[in-house]
Simulated assay, not measured.
Amino acid sequence: MKAADLFAGAGGFSTGAKQAGCYVVWAANHWQSAVDVHAANHPETAHACQDLNQADWRDVPAHDLLLASPACQGHTPARGKEKPHHDAQRSTAWAVTSALEFHRPAAAVAENVPEFLKWALFPAWRQAVEALGYALALHVIDSADHGVPQHRRRLFIVCTRSKSPLQLHFEPRAHVGANRFINFESGKWADIHRSGRSAATLARVAAGRARFGERFLMPYYGSGSGLTGRCLSRPLGTVTTVDRWAVVNGSRMRMLTAAENRDAMGFPATYKLPEQHRQAVHMLGNAVCPPVARDVIAGIMAAA
């Protein structure tokens, strides 16, 4: 099965597609750095760097499966206060319908945050896809149920040229704890009680230590996991586009490394990341977890 990957970014959808037995013929993103990372890991794929709302679909090779992860920033509650650019980000979903109209592949999968379903224009978007001959099945999936050491709930819309929607059923895999990827010998450690450390951070450390002992994870920014942190035997909370999770080891603490974020997303250990830490974390936080993509695509292929 040949696949095309829109908004390919760090390449999680493409990686999962390859693991499911697909050949990814084309991938595109508007950010050149993301395209470069995707190309480094998927050299056999043709690449384009462009605004996909301006794409000429005649330039895209024929494919059986369209994969797409339009921007989620305009939908997620994590966006904070409404901003003008969110309108433009939400409009990226229409590139999916444009690609489907031209190529009419047998199937498509669109990934986004579950709040995508609350978008005022979602009924119109769904109607447009259905008008092209596709039946839609909505799946909200937690990556932890697919063996990824991270809780990450995402919406996967499976579109098939079939009379009825293709409802996929997955046997939940055993949850994998964060201790699978934390490397206590790596990273830049700092004393917890150094000058300038905020009272909120110190309170979170104290609460986590009282509950979990000397080694645990905690959100360094924001209020995720409350004020108590997370034990290492649990999957990590959602990886975001900025550094969020810190690991505590006795009297020291540090943020997760790019490699640990990669492993928490379920990418292969050999997957190449940008040298700049901030870029790597940003791309990973926007990515699709490869094992989830693999299982969804494998389910579609099995039903074909």
Rank of each mutant, 00 (worst) to 15 (best):
P235E: 02
F181K: 00
T160P: 08
H103I: 10
T45E: 08
R79F: 04
H277A: 11
L166K: 02
A131Y: 02
V109D: 05
H86W: 12
H38L: 12
F102I: 07
A68Y: 06
G229Q: 01
T257I: 09
A17V: 03
K163V: 12
M301H: 09
H75V: 04
V35A: 11
W189F: 05
A48D: 08
Q89G: 11
W94G: 06
G213Q: 07
F184V: 05
D51I: 07
W119E: 09
V140H: 06
P219G: 03
L232R: 01
R244L: 13
R230F: 02
Q89W: 14
H75N: 02
L168K: 04
F13T: 06
L232G: 01
A39Q: 13
K2W: 11
A17E: 04
D5A: 05
R294K: 15
S162L: 14
G12V: 04
K163Q: 15
L132H: 00
R204N: 13
T238S: 15
W57C: 05
A287M: 06
D59P: 03
A304T: 13
V24E: 00
L168D: 08
E171Q: 15
W31N: 09
P235F: 01
A287R: 00
A4E: 03
A124T: 15
S198T: 15
T201F: 15
E214N: 12
L217K: 00
F102W: 15
A137V: 03
L67C: 09
G16R: 03
D64I: 02
V205M: 07
M283C: 02
A203N: 13
F212C: 05
W245S: 06
A280I: 08
A71Y: 10
L168N: 09
K2H: 15
S198C: 08
K118M: 12
I300N: 02
A174H: 11
A55R: 04
A210N: 11
L121Y: 13
C49H: 01
L132Y: 00
Q279C: 08
F156E: 02
A108Q: 01
P165Y: 00
N261M: 07
A120Y: 10
S164I: 09
H86C: 11
D36H: 00
R211S: 10
E130K: 09
T15H: 09
H282A: 14
R252D: 11
R90D: 05
P123H: 03
L138C: 13
L232E: 05
A304S: 12
A303K: 10
G229A: 06
N112T: 00
H30W: 12
H63C: 10
P268T: 01
P123F: 04
F181Q: 01
Q19R: 15
S233V: 05
L273Y: 03
F212I: 00
M301Q: 13
A78T: 11
N286A: 09
C22F: 14
V288G: 07
A4M: 09
I182M: 06
Q89Y: 12
G11D: 07
E260H: 00
S164P: 07
K118P: 06
V281W: 02
R254S: 10
L67M: 14
A210F: 03
Y221P: 01
A55W: 00
N29P: 07
A258Y: 03
Y23Q: 12
D295W: 00
S69M: 09
L273C: 06
A259G: 05
L52P: 06
L155C: 08
L52M: 15
L256R: 03
V247M: 02
P219H: 08
N286D: 14
S251C: 10
G147Y: 01
D142I: 07
A71C: 15
R90K: 15
L284T: 03
H47L: 10
E214A: 15
